[in-house]
């Protein structure tokens, strides 16, 4: 594999703590800010839709970042980057949770019957829920203690992250009125990210 740097890049503890703090601030600031503007009717004509769209996009973008970290760590190389992966992954789940909460509370306005019938009857919502459950499972098993306990099962569970990305993009495309819309850019980016991990994916399919 071609390496971009001649010497491995190290990230000191200080830099790591600062960077993580910044990531927390940016993600929480963004989602919190959106919510604040939404409450004050300053998010365009339909604040609920704006929130659903922006939180869904945030979840997908964070998922893509999560997936680009390990190829980047190998290619730079910079093993310390791996210490950021879980943060992004869990935030992808958090953004999806926020997305689902906004949909349930402010779009359906707590009409749980409607939520259930929508999940059953609307394929794109069904796919969204499956994606959400996968993200939930990956997040719950992301703690070091559980990871150690799970042994090699951990990796096989977390390989579902590829399926999760695929389903998230499917949900995205399906929610749009026509095919030629924004989600195509995300499929493209996802494709590029996947090619950086093509060895791994080939291996996955061979050993299954």
């Amino acid at each position: 594999m071609k390496r971009l740097l001649s010497k491995p890049l190290r990230i000191s503890n200080n830099v790591r703590v600062t960077a993580k703090t910044l990531i927390h601030l940016i993600v929480l600031g963004y989602l919190g800010g959106l919510f604040y503007f939404g409450l004050n009717d300053a998010l365009g004509a339909d604040p609920v839709k704006t929130l659903i769209h922006n939180s869904g996009l945030t979840a997908v973008i964070l998922l893509l970042i999560t997936l680009v970290i390990s190829p980047l760590a190998q290619r730079l190389p910079c093993a310390d980057l791996m210490k950021f992966r879980r943060l992004f992954g869990v935030y992808a789940f958090f953004a999806a949770l926020y997305h689902l909460a906004i949909f349930t509370v402010f779009d359906l306005q707590m009409n749980i019957g409607l939520l259930i019938s929508e999940i059953i009857r609307r394929p794109y919502i069904t796919v969204g829920l499956i994606t959400f459950i996968l993200l939930l499972a990956l997040s719950l098993t992301s703690f070091d203690r559980i990871k150690r306990k799970m042994g090699k099962h951990w990796q096989s569970l977390h390989n579902y992250v590829y399926l999760t990305l695929f389903l998230a993009l499917l949900h995205f495309s399906w929610s749009e009125k026509t095919l030629l819309q924004t989600s195509l850019y995300y499929w493209l980016v996802a494709f590029v990210v996947m090619t950086t991990r093509s060895m791994k994916i080939k291996r996955l399919f061979k050993f299954k």
Partner: peptide, 15 residues
């Protein structure tokens, strides 16, 4: 792909 039984009226008042 979605229900038409109800709608959200766009007026004012935010979330």
């Amino acid at each position: 792909r979605w229900s038409q039984a109800s709608e959200r009226r766009i007026t004012t008042g935010g979330l």
